[in-house]
């Protein structure tokens, strides 16, 4: 099918463009990598002096899955927001007038966000030995798949939001009222069990909570049952993230089609 090959080529080139630009902008890589590293070593290192290891897990180790989640969250949303840039600088018209389906545009953008996120996750995994976390091949693969699913769904979520934004001014609002709360209320920094009740309810409604918990299931399995360990069975985490992925995948397409 020549048509299918054409759509695949379009998906490829749409995501290739974003990756290329990401790699080209050194400052963006530095910036996005500096954030989790600062958290890990400044916040994590500092807090480790106050918080005793529980179930053999130090505070720095405890926040590591959260740092992966944060990296994916920021990278995915930031990448999806490029739709707003594209609209602002006119490039979106070049894409929209091409003989390809809107579906392929969304898939291309989602693949781009996923790849950029995964690239950063891989860089972050360099710290696994430094943090004294042990990772076998199976765990690595599981981590890769879970991160990938989370990245894909969060990028779709970002596309859903970005399709509704008409100017770049909304960016700060998104960052302050969506992305930051999503991060802080995800159990990334603080065990969900120990949160005040109201915040805990919100945290339960946050899909990122289950994404991070899934990573805890892989990385901190030894601490299960303690506040530092995972909260839900891995299967629950997987199911919630998969459901979130399905919903955002559909909604991002609908939303983009309406906006375009």
């Amino acid at each position: 099918m020549a048509n299918l090959a054409h759509e695949i080529k379009a998906i490829y080139v749409i995501s290739y463009r974003e990756l290329k630009k990401f790699i080209r902008e050194r400052s963006r890589i530095m910036g996005t990598m500096a954030r989790p590293i600062l958290w890990l070593f400044v916040v994590g290192g500092g807090m480790s002096r106050l918080v005793r290891p529980v179930g053999g897990v130090s505070y720095t180790q405890f926040i590591f899955p959260g740092m992966i989640g944060m990296t994916i969250l920021f990278a995915s949303i930031f990448s999806a927001i490029s739709i707003v840039w594209d609209r602002e600088f006119g490039f979106l018209k070049e894409i929209l007038v091409a003989p390809i389906s809107r579906f392929s545009v969304v898939v291309g953008k989602a693949m781009a966000g996923t790849s950029i996120s995964m690239l950063q996750v891989l860089i972050l995994l360099i710290f696994v030995p430094v943090l004294g976390i042990k990772l076998n091949v199976l765990q690595f693969l599981l981590l890769f798949v879970s991160s990938g699913m989370l990245a894909f769904s969060l990028t779709c979520f970002g596309i859903l939001v970005a399709s509704r934004m008409t100017s770049y001014e909304g960016f700060n609002i998104i960052m302050n009222f969506l992305v930051m709360p999503m991060f802080f209320l995800s159990g990334a920094m603080y065990p969900v069990k120990l949160m005040p009740p109201v915040l805990r309810e919100i945290t339960y409604a946050n899909p990122l909570t289950y994404g991070v918990d899934g990573l805890k299931n892989i990385l901190l399995a030894g601490a299960s049952g303690t506040p530092m360990g995972p909260e839900y069975p891995a299967l629950v985490d997987f199911a919630v993230v998969a459901g979130f992925l399905a919903v955002t995948a559909v909604l991002s397409n609908l939303s983009f089609r309406r906006a375009a």
Binding site: A2, A5, R17, E25
Partner: peptide
């Protein structure tokens, strides 16, 4: 409607692939 962050060649290649 060009992408300023790409080279001339890349802008054209992007277009070419979009058109199959």
């Amino acid at each position: 409607t060009l992408d300023n962050g790409l080279t001339a060649f890349e802008n054209l290649l992007f277009h070419a692939y979009l058109y199959g």
